[in-house]
Amino acid sequence: MLTYTLRRILMLIPVLIGMSLITFSIVHAIPGDPAKTIAGDKATPEQLQQIRESLGLDQPFYVQYLNYVKGLLKGDLGTSLITQVPIAEEIGPFLAATAELTIAALLIAVFLGVNLGILSAWKQNSWMDYGAMFIALIGVSIPVFWLGLMEQWLFAQQLDWLPSYGRVDPRLGFEPLTQFYVLDSLLYGDFHWLQDVLMHLILPAVALGTIPMAVIARMTRSSMLEVMRQDYIRTARAKGLSEFWVIYKHTLKNAFIPILTVMGLQLGLLLGGAVLTETIFSWPGVGRYVYDAINQRNYPVIQSGILVLATIFVLINLIVDLLYAWIDPRIKYGKE
């Protein structure tokens, strides 16, 4: 298991180098001048030149890249051109907001998706199967922004059950501790805060989780059907196990590897796809942070924001790879 883990981690190095190079190049290929962003339209050529020199923008591309990587290794993501605050400090709360939303969306997607898939595989070709797969079909087809707007219209505007934007009601005087608001309100032990935070979380999490829910449901169904035909499922039944254990223990664990793969990929998509949801629900996440940076031509933020998201995506896939080996003992023994 240790060699397997180490090898997977070593394989990350070239991936991370490639990613940093790509984000760095893309940002440099975008037309526009960072110096102008800082100095404004009325700056003189001398002022612009001075800014370029202070930022090292007059140096050759590879020198700039190496400096950037040197900074990254020290944990320096650069400094925001607009706020002049180091990005590594500034990005934290945004990341936490996105992580909270993404985790909530994934939990909804996994819980509903897996159970819907199991139900429809278990009752294959019944009306329950067709019903579940119809829901899944609608789920994958629905555009996130439309679903988000409809949710706001119905649950916030018409019914007035749930708040339609933000992370917490500002009137409550909530003071973040870790920036994960659900965790914070639990740490404070304040039920009112927890309730408010959860109510703010529901609509964006449902909007964001719908597509992954549908994808997971479809994958679960086909994977479960595949496993249900196996001899060892017949053995489990022959032992006299109840249907519940046959399905949730013997079948689901075997069916879980493809489901896990889909979950990892969907989680990556959630991080990226959160931009739309975050915009609709005024959710102060990293998607919004990068989106604003693009509008403001805040190059270091675009560059480092994308790099951070990409790194998280790669790390999630690493975790998924390690989970494979944990679920299926044949993977780790086979590779050593």
């Binding site: 001899d231 060892y232 017949r234 053995t235 489990a236 022959a238 013997h250 075997n254 003992p329």
Partner: peptide, 11 residues
């Protein structure tokens, strides 16, 4: 059963 290779749950 006939197939001992596949009749036990691998996980």
């Amino acid at each position: 059963f006939q197939e001992p290779m596949t009749s036990l749950n691998p996980l």
